[in-house]
Nucleic acid binder design. Structure first.
Length: 436
RNA sequence: GGAGGUGUGGCAGAGUGGUCGAAUGCACUGGUCUUGAAAACCAGCAUACUUAACGGUAUCGGGGGUUCGAAUCCCUCCGCCUCCGCCA
């Protein structure tokens, strides 16, 4: 509803592409594991054809209506009342038909929108075909330190021992998934945020402090709605959504813009808390800091020329890897397979750090190229050298999400005496060299 | 939260029911002139959909309504301004 209708008019996958590159798109949707891709696409094209047929008739009728209305004005001025009332009678019929067609248009538009919303972005050709996370490709992996020479403790225990995270009072104040950072824990959080922002600034990103609540239009703009409805906290009194990531407000800053080619690349970053309901999560996935309802994250966003977006994807991924190296955390880079990528992405790299005590990998960053999937919704375009308006490409990546970084730092930097060392690069920001 | 005002093209600013997609100025683009520049003059200059093209349709903050016809009248929502209240 609301602006959604207007925003969705140009649709998700561009309807033009769907018309002109039908076979390629169907193949790609099949790669993405979409069921009945061919049938769905053909349905959409059928509805689209119907819509255009109605539109043509409607336009013709409106043209006639405009003409007659104008002639009535003329006739009345000339005092030719009898001709004028004749013409008026004719408009009555046209008007009726227009009303019918308008209703048809509304229905067909709705059908088209609903169907297009079910189609995800198509994967880039370099993305491996697969069904689930098991089919993701490990691109690179750093050396793992698995043997501590003593029994490594999980971060949730370390955090309590050093009194830097208060889980219980978090439950009292709000609920599970809302931990309270305390003392050096809070300070460590602040140090990480500052450090990440400094690095982004040095890499040419402009820092933003966006709103933490967004309206419905913004939620549609970046694709959280309708796909992730129910995963976001919803302030129903004012119909605002608590942001699940800074990607939403920061990308929407540019919604509706037509930028100059010379403004590329647009590089934006920002720190925000992120809010996620995480309905349906359970078990060891939600233990400790592994999955929270509120967490902190620094996000990178880039809006670039379509020719440059894959270069940019590599660039952003390397930026994040640089952070992990500075922090001295063991990590690996994954290329997500078609089935495991998000709904909106064309190609995604995930970065995972190894959590020593849990003996598992934790996702700390996801860097994606959305190509035109988001910009189409956002109507975010640029004028090319021929002065034609074209859609930009948009990308984003976490750099980084804090909780799992904190978990990995605590676990990987724990010493036999129970203390936890702070990596050198963070010490200027924490003001201390170890915890405990 | 209350009262009043206001919302037109990149900007400024006309237009209060009929030939208005919208006067005029500025800015911008191309051209003439000039050694070059300025000035002057000429032309162009919103977006989207549709058409092979001519053309057509929609859009004057958003949505709805009245009318043969709406930028212009009515309803509603949103933004901005002023005053009052409240508040970090």
């Amino acid at each position: 509803m609301l602006l959604a209708r207007k925003l969705l008019e140009p649709f998700m996958l561009e309807i033009n592409k769907l018309r002109t590159q039908t076979d390629t798109i169907i193949q790609n949707l099949v790669r993405k594991q979409v069921k009945d891709a061919e049938k769905t696409v053909n349905n959409i094209l059928e509805v689209d054809a119907k819509r255009r047929a109605i539109q043509v008739e409607l336009d013709q009728l409106r043209a006639e209506m405009n003409k007659v209305a104008k002639s009535i004005g003329k006739l009345k001025k000339e005092g030719n009342e009898s001709e004028a009332s004749k013409a008026q009678a004719r408009t009555g019929e046209i008007k009726q038909r227009i009303k019918e067609l308008e209703e048809d248009t509304r229905q067909v538009d709705q059908q088209l929108t609903d169907q297009l919303l079910t189609l995800p972005n198509t994967p880039h050709e370099s993305v491996p075909v697969g069904k689930s996370a098991d089919d993701n490709e490990v691109v690179s992996e750093t050396e793992l330190k698995k043997d501590f020479g003593f029994k490594a403790k999980p971060h949730w225990d370390l955090a309590v021992e050093h009194d830097i995270i208060d889980w219980k009072r978090g439950v009292k104040v709000t609920g599970a998934g809302f931990p309270i950072y305390k003392g050096k824990g809070a300070r460590l959080q602040r140090a990480l945020i500052t450090y990440f922002l400094e690095k982004a600034g040095a890499a040419g990103y402009t820092e933003y402090q966006p709103p933490l609540l967004v309206n419905e239009d913004s939620a549609y703009g970046t694709g959280q709605l309708p796909d992730k409805d129910g995963q976001m906290y919803h302030a129903t009194g004012d119909n605002f959504y608590l942001i699940p990531t800074a990607e939403v407000p920061i990308t929407n800053i540019f919604r509706g813009d037509i930028v100059k080619e010379s403004e590329f690349p647009i590089k934006a970053c920002g720190y925000t808390p992120c809010f996620r309901r995480e309905a349906g999560s359970y078990g060891k996935d939600v233990k400790g800091l592994n999955r929270l309802h509120q967490f902190d994250k620094v996000e990178l966003v880039q809006i670039v020329h379509p020719d440059k977006s894959y270069e940019t994807l590599e660039d952003m991924t390397q930026h994040v890897e640089g952070l992990l190296e500075d922090l001295g955390l063991p990590y690996r880079r994954l290329l997500l397979c078609t089935g495991d990528m998000s709904f909106t992405s064309a190609k995604t790299f995930d970065l995972e750090v190894y959590s020593a005590a849990q003996e598992r990998w934790l996702e700390v960053s996801s860097v994606s190229n959305f190509e035109t999937y988001q910009t189409n919704r956002l109507k975010l375009r640029f004028k090319d050298e021929n002065k034609k308006t074209q859609l930009c490409h948009s990308l984003n990546g976490s750099a980084l999400a804090l909780p799992r970084i904190v978990a990995a730092l605590l676990e990987n930097y724990q010493q036999e005496d129970g203390s936890i060392l702070i990596p050198k690069c963070l010490q200027p920001y924490t003001g201390f060299e170890k915890i405990g």
